[in-house]
Each structure stands twice: as C-alpha cells, then as structure tokens.
Design a binder for these strands. Structure first.
Lengths: 227, 227
DNA sequence: TATTAAATAATTGTCGACAATTTATTATGG
DNA sequence: CCATAATAAATTGTCGACAATTATTTAATA
C-alpha cells in the first residue's frame, strides 16, 4: 500500500542496477537530487558503492523514463521542469487518459469498478478534513487515475502513463506543490467519471476525463498568466 | 530525404554506441534481426566489433524505444509483434495524433501548412500509378503524420510519437506488409485534415485524424476476424 | 585588465576480465 | 523410457582501468 506504482511483475528488484534505478527515481521525483543538476557518475557510483557500469545501466533507464537527459560526451542531467513542459504533459494526459477512460468503460470488470468506487469514497472520507492539498500530495489522485488506466487493458497505454508520465507528474507535485483549489470539484468529477464507466458509456467517460484534466491545465495556465 | 526521422539535433552520431543504436534500430525495423529472437550480446558485439559495454549502451536505448525487451539475468529479446499489440498502438495513435492535429491547427505556420500541402500533392502524383502499397511501404504516409506531429509544437508528443511509436509502426509495415485497400481514401482524408488545419478548426482536425486512424484499425480488426 | 592560448584536471566513452546466474548437457534413479 | 539431479557451458551482471573528450586552470599576449 505504500507506493502505488511498481511495475506489476518487476515488484522485486533482483539486480543492483534495478535497486539503484528505483531508488534514484524516487530521489529525483522527490527533489533530493536537484532538478536540472548534473549527474556526476563517479560521485553517484561512490554514493551507492557500485561501479560506473552498473550505475550507467540505471541511468540509461532513467533517461528512458524522461527523468534524465543525456548529451554525448557530456553526461546526464536531471530534467528541468518548466511550466511549458507541465502544460505539454497535461495535453498528452488529456488525450491518453481520455482514451484510457473510453476503453475502461468497455473493459473494466464489475469488481474493478467496485474497487475504484471504494477507493474514491475511502479517499473522500480519510481526507475530507485535510483539505485539498493532501489529496494531491499524497497521490490519492494519481491512484485513481492509475486504476482507470489499468482498467483500460491497453498495455501500451499503461506503459506510457504509469511507467513514464506519472513519475514526471509526481515530480511536479513534489517540487512545485500542487495545492489546488480544485479538490472538492475533483472528487465530484471523479464520481461522474466512474458513473459513466459503470454505464459503459465510453464516449461520455472520455469526454469527462478530458475535461477533468483540461480543468487542471487551465488552472495552471491561469496562475501562470497572473504571475 | 533518405530517412524521415532523425532526432533534430542528434542527426550526426558522435559515439560508437550511437552508431550501433541507429543501425540496429533500422535492422530491427526491417526485420533483419528477426522479431522475437534473443539478442546474444557476445555475438552482436563481435558483429559490430565493439565491446559489450558499448553494445549494452545501445541496447538499453533500444529498450526505451520499445523495440527490445529485457528480463533480468536473461537478456534482451526483440519485441514480438502481434495483432493485439498493433491494435493497442492504433488506439494510442488515435488519441495522441488526434491531439497533435488539434494543436497543429492552432500552432502551424502558413509556411508549414504550405509544406504539408506540397508534400501531399507530391506524393499523390509520384505514386498515383503504383497503387496503394507503395505509399505505405515507402513511408510517405508516415511523413505526412510526422509533419503534423511536428507542427503541434508539443515536444512530449513529438518524442512519444516520432521517436518511439513510429518505429514500431514502421516495423509492422515492413514485416506484416500493410497492403491496404485504403490508399485512395487515405489521400482524401489527408486532404480534409489539411483543410481543417488551414481553417484553424482544431476540433474538426482532431476528429478527422481520429477517424482516419480509426479506419485503419477497423481495417485490421476486420481482416483479423476473417482469418 | 581582458582575451586568447596552452596545460592540466576531471569526466565520459570504451575495453577486457571475473563473478553470479541461467541454460544446456550429462548422469542417475525410478 | 521418462523424470529428476548433478555437472558443464554459456550468458548476463559487475568491476576496475585506460583512452578520448570536455571542462577548468594557468600562462601569455595585446
């Protein structure tokens, strides 16, 4: 229950590079490895007490996740987040999760839907006091989206969203602090999405999800313009 | 004009691993490295006359593109394409390229649109004789989609589609032979999409692109059911 | 002093070797 | 003969060292 996102089969890391990959990913997401900073391979290798080869294995995988960037003969840097990039992510999520929702309406089992419902009400109660911020910070929101993407049954969608984009999203929330005034609204929107899925109305579910994400994007755009 | 897809800045490969990465990618796409086959690191390293470390660097990047799969302590395999996976790709393209089209309608310059138009009429004339198949095989179709995605101006979209998915799409076309009866229709659909983009009607452009891709998917689904 | 050039230091790219694990082969027993 | 266990071979994971490139510092010149 701790971390919402382990790759299904790969939950247990078997190799040293796996360990470092997972640990470093978390540290980047949380900002312990400062964003935009250069990765010193010798230093990091010492820190983990592994060889550079092993470290590089982990680093190249992090690059695949979009958390690191690499330039030949220069090295790796932690990705630099910007408002522009955040907006790009929103657009991609809008289209991808919209599709996921559409497919979820067709493919989710009754059990899965029930799980989703219980997850939402559980979140609603546990955190109705600690307004808003906690919901986003503690990643309850992403749990919800995660389950829907999974429910789509589309392996490629799952890979793109759950194994790549969502880590970037977490990174933003940790470091930019997504304290949004949308918490209450978000709950209601989640409810409506579930309803559409339950009704097997894929088209509506897609529209609702797109609006749901689009609203977050507009929120950021608005805040950006006032700065 | 040879290859439609080099990463903009990285056109020239500077390092040995880059070279191997690019070459191996092409060989996998074309099926010269048989799909589903296991990668023998010692053998491939000998083939390219490089060390395993350098090869592994290339392999891990190929994994990031979704062309290779890796299992700890077992090694890399070329991805195995299936009709199911192809349908998954279509769904993702439908949503992603739909969004790209929407954004392209907002962001493409007059010049870019003119280029797109000339590309299409050029393709139309050059290959109107060599019916259908050539258009898909020679990747004229992907060129068109490529330019639109680029026109969206969304870096993430560009990365996901042009640097990952499109290589898988090419792989399918090379190895499954996408001889479709849709060539004529496809041209008309492309024209309509351009028109919508020119009219700055993002919403319509998105719908048209989604239908365009969806039609290809339905085509595959139909053929699958008759087998 | 500011700018450029040379020399030095540090980092990445590449290599070959060994250890750990998996796969293939052979041996053993029912 | 088949199934299982032990052994051998091959493959991947990991390591440390050297070469090539980049970054930094020092020296030289205007």
């Amino acid at each position: 229950m701790a971390n919402t996102a382990d790759k299904s089969p790969n939950a247990v890391a078997t190799t040293r590079a796996d360990l470092v990959f997972t640990d470093l990913r978390q540290r980047i997401v949380e900002g312990l490895v400062v964003m935009g900073s250069k990765i010193s391979e010798p230093e990091l290798a010492r820190h983990y007490d592994i060889s550079r080869s092993t470290l590089r294995d982990a680093l190249s995988r992090l690059e695949g996740c979009g958390l690191l960037e690499r330039k030949a003969n220069v090295g790796y840097r932690v990705v630099t987040l910007s408002t522009e990039k955040l907006l790009e992510i929103f657009r991609v999520r809008e289209s991808l999760e919209g599709m996921a929702c559409n497919l979820a309406a067709k493919n989710m089992t009754a059990e899965q839907i029930a799980e989703l419902k219980s997850l939402l009400t559980q979140h609603e109660q546990n955190e109705s006091l600690q307004q808003g911020e906690a919901y986003y910070q503690k990643e309850g929101d992403l749990d919800f989206h995660f389950k829907i993407v999974f429910g789509s049954g589309n392996g490629l969608l799952i890979r793109l969203l759950c194994e790549e984009l969502y880590y970037l999203v977490r990174m933003y929330r940790y470091q930019f602090g997504m304290a949004s005034p949308r918490a209450k609204k978000a709950f209601r929107e989640h409810h409506n999405i579930i309803q559409a899925i339950e009704d097997k109305d894929g088209e509506l579910a897609e529209i609702l999800m797109r609006r749901h994400i689009s609203a977050s994007r507009l929120n950021v755009e608005k805040r950006m313009n006032t700065l």
